[in-house]
């Protein structure tokens, strides 16, 4: 066997010999590749055909898809429940935002620093939780606690604008400046599209590696994984730190797209919940679930917002999220994607 299969602990289906080929798309059915290609093409040409409003909705969809993919690494792949992912959005956004505002440093630099800061924070939370056997719901509470006290810290930290917020300078310009991430909605659309595609490919790749299978083992039965000699602590830490870093990069996008950051909103529990709702609806632990969930949820939210503005009803969006979640939990507890995948005939051949 070649070095390629050495890296992939688990061969796909040995009978077809696909394992030896390795590669990113070896295990993907042809039909799925075609559909994925069509979907990607649609996303690529969209800005040329849709209006401003629809484009802004699509940016939002991709933003939540990206965050969902990031959260899914920790919860879906490794089975570690975080209810405080807003923490990493905030850390990423504030790091890149402050470096830009105070030192004029480009967001790409802030992205690296913000991701590192978030990874360290994730590492601290993970180390505390995993070393001292804080599990499940209690671990989730730990993640909330960190998000909350970071919010309070930023609320009182003058350098980042404290509770009155941090503003990124906005100027009118005709050209897109990708280096400083200043420009049109179309530019932001392609940036978040690239980020989401990147996260999707990264996740797909990880699942085919040794680490992906170790995560699955830890998720299914941590004790068993441990007795087999998997360094459970290490692989859980990898999941948490990677998820945190990815989420922080989403936060950088947020900062430069919206141009304002308030501790009260960016670190809020509300945001942590919002980013995981899509994943639950789409299908936790699946690759496409976070994307599908973001499409469904954001579209639903936007439609209802439009409707309720006419009717003068507030809070319908939040309620609809609750209803959607209930419906999914009762009728499709695995999420929409596993069901849709079957419907589309995209099951992996065994």
């Amino acid at each position: 066997m070649s070095g390629v299969s050495e890296n992939r602990v688990l061969a796909g289906s040995p009978s077809t010999g696909e394992a030896a080929r390795g590669g990113l798309i070896a295990d993907v059915p042809r039909r799925a590749l075609i559909l994925l290609g069509l979907f990607a093409a649609l996303l690529l040409v969209a800005p040329a055909t849709v209006g401003d409003y629809l484009l802004s909705v699509m940016i939002l969809v991709l933003y939540y898809a990206y965050l969902g993919l990031a959260w899914n690494v920790m919860m879906g792949f490794a089975g570690q429940f975080s209810l405080g992912h807003a923490l990493y959005i905030g850390l990423g956004g504030y790091t890149a935002g402050a470096l830009f505002v105070h030192y004029g440093l480009p967001p790409w630099f802030g992205m690296v620093v913000g991701a590192a800061v978030a990874a360290v924070m994730g590492g601290v939370i993970g180390a505390l939780g995993f070393r001292f056997g804080v599990k499940g719901v209690y671990f989730a509470l730990l993640t909330i606690a960190f998000a909350e006290f970071t919010r309070i810290l930023f609320d009182h930290w003058g350098w980042v604008g404290a509770s009155s917020g941090l503003y990124l300078p906005v100027e009118y310009r005709d050209t897109d400046d990708l280096w400083l991430l200043r420009g049109s909605a179309t530019m932001f659309y392609y940036v978040i599209l690239a980020m989401t595609a990147g996260a999707f490919i990264l996740c797909h790749w990880l699942l085919q590696r040794r680490v992906g299978y170790y995560w699955q083992a830890i998720r299914e039965d941590q004790e068993a994984a441990q007795t087999l000699g998997i360094d459970v602590f290490r692989y859980k830490m990898i999941a948490v730190m990677l998820s945190a870093a990815m989420t922080a990069i989403g936060g950088v996008f947020y900062a430069f797209y919206y141009n304002n950051l308030y501790p009260e909103t960016i670190f809020s529990m509300h945001r942590s919940i919002e980013l995981m709702l899509g994943v639950i609806i789409g299908g936790i632990g699946t690759l496409f679930g976070p994307i599908l969930g973001a499409i469904v949820l954001t579209t639903l939210g936007e439609m209802l917002t439009g409707l309720t503005e006419d009717l003068g009803l507030d809070g319908i969006k939040q309620m609809s999220y609750g209803v959607a979640l209930l419906v999914i939990i009762v009728y499709r507890p695995g999420g929409l994607w596993p069901w849709l995948r079957r419907r589309l005939g995209l099951e992996k051949p065994r």
């Binding site: 602990v9 688990l10 061969a11 040995p14 040794r210 299978y213 170790y214 699955q216 083992a217 299914e220 039965d221 004790e223 068993a224 994984a225 007795t227 087999l228 000699g229 998997i230 065994r350």
Partner: peptide
């Protein structure tokens, strides 16, 4: 303590992580 959602073969392969 087996991994219920993995196949028998995958379970066995998980035994060879060392």
């Amino acid at each position: 303590q087996i991994f219920p959602n993995m196949t028998v073969r995958e379970n066995l392969e998980m035994g060879a992580v060392l």
